[in-house]
């Protein structure tokens, strides 16, 4: 009887994210001149999937009560790398994909090692590693260019059976293969426990370090997948500082919208995906409502500001003023 209530309580953030996305997407589609067609959904899916990968990456780290300000730069680095090596026949392409994903994972591992074993603050450590990753990306691609295996790119960004966007299928596969097993594993539970209360987790004999390290590692892998998909969408690699920091920024917004607590221990990567799609829809909505493009960055900033202020509603429930200071 009460089991589903526990489940509902646990998934509240994710369901809120889903609700926000559904409301925004229906408003968007209702105001879109073409209406609810496969084309509109396809475009929205392809735009959203990129941010969804980065948001999942961010969510994994945020769940451990950390933050990763280098996710956008890992995306840029893997994008630049993929535009060099994901080319040619089937075998070189496969090797290239593996190498790109491995690079992302290594970036995540470096972040994790610095934060967990180096005991550095995640904010500064990841800003610094982000600069390194961006520098490496810029070394690989001083000017935008490169190419990618277009057959693979078209297969992963096209449509299955003419209706379902294959990028969404890929995203669902990643959730099934990476997120769900992680969530159920000892390491995943340890990551949640460490985010919720590290001393308590330690006292209970939870392998905190292993759990947190796994979260950072998978976060790098997911950001690498984002970089790979960016290459599939654009067919080129580009080391743009602005785009890297924008992805980092919107990944945080997506995580907040998706109901992942910034204090750690609560939320899910699935929620972050809904948050990412909701965040992307805000941009599209401004387009559907025919807002002057000049005003779009400002309106997006204001939406972002409101999104991050949502969390402070919890202050209304604080009974003791000492609880302000976590």
């Amino acid at each position: 009887m009460s089991e589903w209530r526990y489940w509902l309580n646990e998934q509240r953030g994710t369901l809120t994210g889903l609700a926000i996305f559904l409301v925004m997407f229906s408003v968007y589609v209702a105001n879109h001149p073409a209406g609810f067609t496969a084309n509109v959904v396809h475009t929205a899916a392809n735009k959203g999937v990129l941010l969804a990968f980065v948001a999942m990456a961010q969510a994994l780290v945020v769940i451990t009560a950390g933050i990763d300000l280098s996710v956008g730069m890992i995306l840029v680095l893997t994008n630049c790398l993929a535009s060099w090596i994901v080319v040619g026949a089937a075998v070189p392409t496969t090797l290239g994909v593996v190498a790109v994903l491995a690079t992302g994972t290594i970036c995540g591992a470096i972040n994790g090692a610095l934060v967990i074993y180096g005991r550095l603050q995640p904010i500064v450590a990841t800003i610094a590693t982000g600069a390194v990753y961006f520098g490496l990306g810029l070394l690989l691609r001083p000017f935008p260019g490169g190419s990618v295996n277009e057959d693979l790119a078209d297969a992963l960004t096209g449509r299955l059976f003419g209706v379902i966007p294959s990028s969404l299928v890929a995203l669902a596969a990643v959730v099934l293969i990476i997120w769900l097993p992680f969530r159920k594993s000892v390491a995943g539970r340890a990551a949640f426990a460490a985010g919720s209360s590290e001393p308590a987790a330690f006292m209970s004999g939870v392998p905190i370090r292993r759990g947190k390290f796994a979260a950072y590692l998978l976060s790098g892998l997911l950001a690498g997948m984002g970089g790979l998909f960016l290459t599939f969408f654009t067919y080129t690699g580009e080391a743009a500082y602005a785009s890297g920091s924008a992805y980092t920024l919107w990944s945080i917004a997506a995580v907040v919208l998706g109901g992942v607590s910034l204090y750690g221990g609560r939320g899910s990567a699935v929620g972050a995906i809904f948050g990412a799609f909701a965040a992307r829809t805000t941009g599209d909505m401004l387009f559907a409502f025919d807002v002057d493009p000049l005003w779009q960055p400002l309106l997006q900033g204001i939406v972002l500001m409101i999104a991050v202020s949502i969390g402070s509603l919890a202050l209304l429930r604080v009974r003791n003023r000492l609880d302000w200071f976590q």
Binding site: L120, A128, T129, A131, G135, L138, A239
Partner: peptide, 14 residues
Amino acid sequence: PEAGRQIVYGIVII
């Protein structure tokens, strides 16, 4: 070049 500078900064800070 700019790329090298970013890398050196990052590494020095770390």
